[in-house]
Amino acid sequence: MIPYGRQSLDQTDIDAVVEVLQSDWLTQGPTIERFEQAMAERCQADFAVAVCNATAALHIACLAAGLGPGDRLWTSPNTFLASANCGRYCGADVDFVDIDPLTWNLDAYALEARLEQAERDGTLPKVLVAVAFSGQSCDLRKIAELAVRYNFTVIEDASHAVGASYAGRPVGCGEFAAMTVFSFHPVKIITSAEGGMVLTNRPVLAERLQRLRSHGMTRDPQQMTEPSHGPWYYQQIELGFNYRITDLQAALGLSQLSKLDDFIGRRRELAARYDQLLAYLPLTLPSSQPEAESAWHLYVVRVQAERCNLSHRQVFEGLRSAGVGVNLHYIPVHLQPYYRDLGFAEGDFPEAERYYAEAISLPLYPLLSDEQQDYVVEQLRRLTE
């Protein structure tokens, strides 16, 4: 089976982890800070805070933004559950903005219309989670302008977009979002096995993120409520979590980061080959917005069922039967039973629902060979022509 995604590891990654295993620090050690500094430098950000996974990163980013009960978080329905669940973890209400029919990202113009209505109704969001679906940022320039006008915090969920760029700058630089979240899950651009990170340029946010990932504790005398009792002393000054990453994971992530350009280059080669090889099939291929250069975490096509002899499901199952491990990203979040119980229903976000009825994620990862990709294309041709 050719998977839709997988990690790309070599001996240098293994050696980096073994070196930490043989060191004095398995967790809360110096490799974590080295990983954070390297990622911040790569993204031209001032601060990076590594955590155990991207869901934890989204959670503490929302808390650092002051999200709580009575507040509202908005995001895209075309995303993984965590982009919405992070708001619920904070006790906030969650709502969605439909997707752009071309980029399949949150539609900035639909957002503008929703914000105008929400201002009249007194229901403006406190946080917007702008998802960089498949590795391509949303229209962040317009979203940032709306954030100033309507006073909400932008968190870019760039779990798919390590190594991507927007407006000529690295995703994570902080020009258009208060915080940016990355994922290092094995199928993502680089991996630390499990892991996540929040990048920001705001010292106050960074300080709180660091505290929240480790039980709300501090050893900084400037943050304490009384003088230190001695070198052993710490204080818990708010309710935090054990969201810490280990040095083992950080070592793997740091080693992977050194290969990021190669990984992105190969993903872009494969995406360009798909564009060429699939051009004449009854499929809708991914498109790009002018200012965004994708990291190509996913290559998603949409089946034009009216031009095929087979349905979307039949094409999907036919590919699986042929040994092509396709997937579907994503089931619209508002259609999940949990969110239906909160009042959402079919028809609420029609563009995301149309997308779901047609989308298939094809295999895309650096170790995918041209021959394997040709096989994927041949199976698609067989099923759709």
Rank of each mutant, 00 (worst) to 15 (best):
V198A: 08
N85V: 02
F152A: 03
M1Q: 06
Y150M: 13
M224E: 07
V333P: 05
R213P: 03
Y233V: 03
A45L: 05
F344E: 09
R354A: 07
Q249K: 13
V198S: 08
G168M: 07
R6P: 01
L58Q: 13
M39P: 01
E306H: 13
Y233A: 12
A16E: 15
P125V: 14
V204Y: 09
Y243I: 06
Y280I: 01
L383T: 01
D341E: 15
E41F: 05
H312D: 03
V376G: 05
P337Q: 15
E19F: 00
E156R: 12
L252N: 06
Q249F: 01
P69A: 14
R72M: 11
D10E: 07
H185W: 13
S8E: 02
R313E: 11
T225K: 14
Q117A: 14
I143Q: 04
N53F: 04
G29W: 13
E119W: 12
E36F: 02
G87Y: 11
A295K: 02
A113C: 06
L248A: 05
T55Q: 15
L67A: 05
K126I: 08
A16V: 09
A177T: 08
I237T: 12
I245G: 01
A271L: 03
V49R: 10
L205P: 02
G91P: 05
T79W: 06
Y299T: 04
D374F: 08
V181N: 02
N242Q: 14
C308F: 05
V198F: 08
P282N: 05
G347N: 13
L102S: 07
F344K: 09
